[in-house]
Design a protein around this nucleic acid. Structure first.
Length: 594
RNA sequence: GGGGCGGUAGCUCAAUUGGUUAGAGCUCCGGACUGUCUAUCCGGAGGUUGCGAGUUCGAAUCUCGUCCGCCUCGCCA
């Protein structure tokens, strides 16, 4: 077997004259008369031109070369020389070529249904790429993503390893937990009718590791949530999971911040600077979202001071709702820039996210025009000042409950940012969002819901509010946000069993239920639990940011489609009746005909 | 579970109001060419229009069902 001495991206003009061996795939094949064949040989490092010429090779070798086709896997032995025909500036190895002296065909390829060319990739439908993933992954850009992902995990292990974090594996077959996403469940053969669940995250185990004296824990771990995938979401995904003992939130944010700084420096050569902080309250009020994209401004303007005074029924109705908000987006020069069609699109978006409609108006020299101008005109001076609006601006309004109004206005702001080209693609805007409330009200269920998760601690001093005003209680949670994407989230945890029990109670988990589901954590908390906290970040989304894709399937070697299928392996699929019998499982799905 | 877009040659797409033998580029196959490099030129092959019904003299086109892909709402502590 021909064993390589170099990769296909290595050779330069300084290597001319050397005898080398390369292995790889035939990227392109160019025949120039019966006696001259050029091949571009590809491996994950690059392309090298191989030449077979009757003038300096025997006819048998040229015949072998003439029989090669795209994606054949071969090894080539020969001499490096400067190119006769002049260098190819498009290739890093373009100064040289490899004059073949021996070619070994490792394996021929059938005619490939898709080709691993980057400039063709966006033309190939994604289902073909997923079906023939082994060919698609040969593309240089896919190889680059795999490399970046590997680089990230290496930096994770190096950075946190140096900080004394211990890598510990937690189980995949665990007990099903009641809150959060739908669990994937696995039947137990040894206990008929009993089930394991796959972890949605190793949350409880990592806390128990703190109680176990591990001090600092790290795991790069698969998590499973049986919910519908999205462009940035898969049912199975990877978290980098961290936990630390004897810390407050500053310690966790420090170490995570220094990691992010190092990552962006080493992978992109970018200095992200100091990471600013914003309270959850400010993020929601000013940006309508808990992970604001700070690459552009266009803040929401609060209209609560005057919205109820102008006799506009939409605003009056909104102000009568519980926890009402009336917010505006003022688009500088928008009266000219935004077309009727765009306003219709914005209106449709607003309705999609629950708004009744989208009140609009234009600011003119003497007041307001179009839309809801007639309601605003009598109060023109006051309203214009409150909005900080100038002639030629377009103003969009949202009026509803806090949740709906901010959701709608936050989405409108993002769409406007994109559509108006306000987003600087080269910018990296990080921030810490802090001071989350502990709970939000779940009106349907008539109880409190944890904003983060039920193990999140209140900020020191906030504990009394668990009794007096749970809705006002601030948590010790924190999210790291970059360019409008939440890349990490965590909190200081509850290490006091009494507080944990109180939180469960507020969440509507009575003592028995809590004991049934989390009893082992509640027990463990009674045996000397250290103060601890941690953070987890989504590796997939982090790599998406670093490589600049908005498709999570691009950063996963073997991803699933939006309906949970693996088009290459055809999972999921049926199993034998005997397998089910052994597991004491019967399917109630309608029989499929083959 | 809801909404939108799509499925035609190996790949990417076209096909007038429902009307002759469903076309093009790339790929592939054969040929020419000794300095190509997204090679070029000449020729050829390649189709159950996702699948199943229905309407019609006639369906890629219209209707119904179904499967698949993408985007999205819900969902995702």
């Amino acid at each position: 077997m021909i064993k390589r001495t170099h990769s296909c991206g290595d050779l330069r003009d300084s290597d001319a004259g050397a005898s080398v061996r390369l292995c790889g795939w035939v990227n392109t094949y160019r025949e120039q008369g019966k006696g001259l064949v050029f091949l571009d040989l590809r491996d994950r490092a690059g392309l090298t031109q191989v030449v077979c010429d009757l003038e300096d090779s025997d006819s048998e070798l040229v015949e072998i070369a003439r029989g090669l086709r795209r994606e054949d896997c071969i090894g080539v032995e020969g001499k490096v020389r400067l190119r006769d025909g002049g260098a190819n500036d498009k290739l890093e190895t373009g100064a040289i070529e490899l004059v073949a002296e021996r070619i070994q065909v490792f394996s021929k390829s059938k005619t490939p249904p898709i080709l691993p060319d980057d400039h063709e990739a966006d033309k190939i439908s994604e289902d073909k790429r997923l079906e023939y993933r082994y060919i698609d992954l040969r593309r240089p850009s896919m190889q680059k993503i795999l490399r970046t992902r590997s680089q990230v995990t290496r930096i994770v292990r190096d950075h946190f390893g140096n900080e004394g974090f211990l890598e510990v594996e937690t189980p995949f077959l665990i007990k099903s937990s009641p809150e959060g996403a739908r669990d994937f469940i696995v039947p137990s053969r040894q206990y008929p009718g009993q089930w394991y669940a796959l972890p949605q995250s190793p949350q409880i185990f990592k806390q128990i590791l703190m109680i176990s004296g591990c001090d600092r824990y790290l795991q790069i771990v698969r998590c499973f949530r049986d919910e519908d995938p999205r462009a940035d979401r898969q049912a199975e995904f990877t978290q980098v999971d961290l936990e630390m003992s004897f810390v407050d939130r500053e310690d966790v944010m420090d170490i995570m911040g220094s990691f992010a700084t190092r990552l962006w420096d080493e992978i992109l050569g970018v200095d992200i600077g100091d990471i600013p902080r914003m309270s959850w309250h400010d993020a929601m009020e000013d940006y309508g979202i808990d992970r604001p994209d700070l690459r552009f401004d266009l803040k929401l303007v609060d209209c609560g001071d005057w919205a109820g005074d102008i006799g506009f029924r939409v605003f009056d109705d909104a102000m009568a709702k519980p926890n009402p908000r009336v917010k505006a987006i003022v688009i500088p020069g928008g009266a000219e820039k935004i077309t009727r069609k765009q306003i219709d699109e914005l209106d449709a978006l607003a309705k999609q996210f629950g708004a009744g409609g989208l009140p609009v108006t234009k600011v003119t020299a003497d007041g307001f025009a179009t839309g809801i101008a007639k309601f605003l005109a009598p109060h023109a001076d006051r309203v214009r000042e409150a909005l900080g609006a100038k002639d030629g601006d377009l103003v969009l309004f949202g009026a509803d409950t806090f949740d709906t109004c901010l959701k709608v206005m936050g989405e409108l702001r993002l769409k406007l940012g994109r559509d108006l080209g306000l987003i600087d693609d080269a910018a990296w805007k990080f921030l810490w969002v802090v001071d989350f409330p502990m709970f939000e009200r779940d009106e349907d269920a008539g109880r409190w819901k944890a904003i983060h998760h039920p193990f999140t601690s209140p900020m020191p001093g906030e504990e009394p509010k668990l009794e007096s005003a749970p809705g006002d209680c601030i948590s010790a949670g924190y999210d790291l946000v970059c360019n409008g994407s939440e890349i990490a989230g965590g909190s200081v945890r509850i290490h006091d069993q009494a507080i944990q029990a109180k939180v469960f109670e507020l969440l509507g988990l009575d003592g028995d239920t809590a004991k049934l589901k989390f009893g082992f954590l509640l027990d463990a908390l009674q045996y000397g639990a250290p103060p601890h906290g941690g953070i987890a970040f989504g590796l997939d989304r982090l790599v998406m940011l670093l490589v600049g894709t908005n498709n999570i399937r691009d950063v996963i070697a073997f991803p699933k489609t939006q309906t949970g299928q693996d088009l290459m392996s055809n999972a999921p699929g049926p199993v034998d009746a005997e397998q089910l019998e052994e597991l004491f499982v019967a399917s109630t799905a309608p029989e499929e005909e083959d």
